[in-house]
Amino acid sequence: MPFHLELPEALRLQGWKVKIRDRERLEQPHATVLHGCRAWRFGLRDRRFLDDSPHPREVPEEIHRILRSRRGALQEAWDRMYPENPVGGRDEN
C-alpha cells in the first residue's frame, strides 16, 4: 500500500498529493510531491528537495511546511516500505 500524507482539503482540491509509492527509486529516500504530470522529490535524509527542476519554489509554501513538520511520519513510512535502505542509513562505513 502506498503511503499518502494527509493534506488540507484546499490543497487536495487543487490536485496536490504527497506520497511514497510501493516501488520508488531507492536512493535517496524521499517522498514525492505530485501535481498533474509534475513531481518533486523531497529528500528525507537532509530535508531538502533533491532536484533543481521543476523548481521547489513552485511547490506551495504550506506543503514545504507540512513536509518539514511531518518528516517523522514520512521517515517511518519509508523505513517500513524500504527496510534495506532506511533513512538513517545502514552502511557499515
Binding site: 500500500m1 506520497k19 509509492r21 516501488r23 504530470c37
Partner: peptide, 27 residues
C-alpha cells in the same frame, strides 16, 4: 500488485496495480 486492477494515476507518473503503486520513473 494486482494486475486485474490496472490503472494510471498522477498524470501518467504512477502505475496502479490494485492497492500497489509503481513510480513510473523508477522503471
Amino acid at each position: 500488485p494486482d494486475p486485474r486492477r490496472l490503472g494510471l494515476d498522477d498524470g501518467g507518473q504512477t502505475i496502479v496495480l490494485g492497492d500497489f503503486e509503481v513510480a513510473f520513473d523508477a522503471l
